[in-house]
Amino acid sequence: MELRQLEYFIAVSEELHFTRAAEKLGISQPTLSQQIRALEDELDIPLFDRIGKKIAITEAGSILLEQSLQIVRNLQNVKDSIAELHNYKKGSFVVGALPSDLDYRISNLLIDYHKEFPKIWLKIVSSVEIAAQVLENEVDIGIGIMPFPDDRLVRIPLCREEYVLVVSERHAWAGRDSIGIEELRGLDTVMFPSGLIGRELVDDCCRKYGFTMNTIMETTSITSVIHLVKANIGATVQPLPLIRSLNDPALRTIRIADDPPTRNIGIIYRTDRFLGHAAKAFMQKAAEHFTAR
């Protein structure tokens, strides 16, 4: 069994089509089919069910795919580790971050990091499914709301943030300093859509008191939420540090005095993921950035 065969097998598993997989690999379709047959002969079991022009991965194929992906990841970790010996200030990695934090809170972190590591190629991906992206190896590091404990993930807490009610300067409650959580009952609000983790944190808190918010408009964009609030369409409930970072005089923040919703922000990455000096330095700067705020 050769690494090349495993790479061929992974490509066929992803495409579930020999011709497309061959084109992706840059080899001929007969060559690819021959290599997969050789792999099946060596293991003495079919890896794919061939149904006409369609194929489906078998149970044995699923087992091999899981192990093959791990082998490829381990090999990449070896390459990354050795590359660190050449020049730790070169390299690349991908970070996943919540859209709202990416828009308003992480820019200074990126600026500071680039000043120290100008040769690092850094990609920031906006996502509300950060844990899933980390587990699927779509990003190397995630910064966001801490997921439930998972043996596959390293979880590093950064900070705990309180949610507050946010209203326009023209809102009837603009002069208030605090409210009780039950006063949210019946209040017109503009929020992220139901199901998003930030929205669920707020909804869960309200459900404990036997009500749901009267959300009259939903949008996935924090910029849009803020514009609607400033237009006095409705209020919103958002993390206090996020609203403070906007520094918008047209907004008013009102503390929720009793049992406010909170979110725990942290860094996550796969336990089997190699992180070089540059990535570790980024995590250190992220910790300093969120602590300072």
Score class of each variant (00 low, 15 high):
M1G: 14
L3H: 06
Y8K: 12
S13C: 15
E14M: 09
L16I: 11
L16S: 12
H17G: 15
F18E: 06
A22Y: 05
A22K: 08
S33M: 14
I36S: 04
L43K: 10
D44K: 15
D44Y: 04
P46F: 04
R50H: 12
G52C: 09
T58N: 07
L64Q: 08
Q70M: 10
L75P: 05
L75C: 03
K79T: 12
H86L: 13
N87F: 12
G91M: 06
S92T: 11
S92E: 12
V94N: 04
A97F: 01
L98I: 13
S100R: 05
D103E: 14
Y104K: 10
L110Q: 02
I111S: 10
D112E: 13
Y113D: 00
K115C: 01
F117P: 03
K119N: 15
I124F: 08
S127I: 08
E129S: 14
A131V: 02
Q133T: 02
N137V: 01
N137S: 13
I141M: 01
G142L: 09
G142D: 06
I143M: 09
I143P: 02
I145Y: 07
D150K: 09
R152K: 14
L153I: 10
V154G: 02
I156W: 02
I156A: 06
C159A: 15
R160I: 13
E162N: 11
Y163M: 11
V164W: 04
L165S: 03
V166N: 01
H171F: 04
A172T: 13
A174Q: 05
A174T: 07
I179S: 08
I179R: 03
G180L: 14
I181H: 12
I181L: 15
L187V: 15
P193W: 07
E218C: 11
S224E: 14
I226G: 01
L228N: 13
A231V: 04
P239E: 08
P239T: 10
L242N: 04
S245C: 09
N247I: 01
A250Q: 11
A250P: 01
I254V: 11
I256H: 02
D258A: 09
D259Q: 11
D259M: 09
D259N: 14
P260S: 11
P261V: 10
R263D: 07
I265D: 00
T271I: 10
R273Q: 15
H277A: 07
K285E: 00
A292R: 15
R293L: 13
